[in-house]
């Protein structure tokens, strides 16, 4: 399996560390108990396209959002989560 790091190009998956679902990208408000329950515990078990977080630990230390398919094992897209954060915060959602 190979993952394309937006900085480093296609690399062997052994260079990456898996974290979890992209749900971790959105922290709920402090008092939103239901939101935190979802953030911490509730995950779908998808056969098909998923988005999850990988760390290029043996590379450039970038955190990467990987869009991949659990059925075909295809990796459809990768993007830097830092870039994603910048884009969303510029839109004024933060």
């Amino acid at each position: 399996m190979r993952i394309t790091c937006p900085h480093c190009g296609p690399r062997d998956r052994r260079e990456f560390t898996y974290y979890g679902d992209k749900a971790y990208l959105t922290r709920p408000a402090l008092e939103d108990a239901r939101g935190w329950d979802g953030f911490l515990h509730l995950r779908d078990n998808i056969a098909g396209e998923v988005q999850d977080l990988w760390y290029h630990e043996l590379g450039c230390a970038a955190w990467i959002l990987v869009t991949r398919n659990t059925v075909t094992h295809e990796i459809n897209h990768t993007s830097l989560i830092a870039q994603l954060h910048l884009t969303t915060s510029q839109k004024g959602t933060k």
């Binding site: 560390t17 974290y19 971790y24 990208l25 922290r27 977080l53 760390y55 630990e57 230390a61 970038a62 955190w63 830097l80 989560i81 830092a82 870039q83 954060h85 910048l86 915060s89």
Partner: peptide, 18 residues
């Protein structure tokens, strides 16, 4: 040590990249 480094990078890039 490496776990904390990973954690700092995540918090930085995911929540306060700016």
């Amino acid at each position: 040590a490496s776990q904390v480094m990973r954690h700092l990078d995540f918090v930085h890039q995911a929540y306060c990249a700016d």
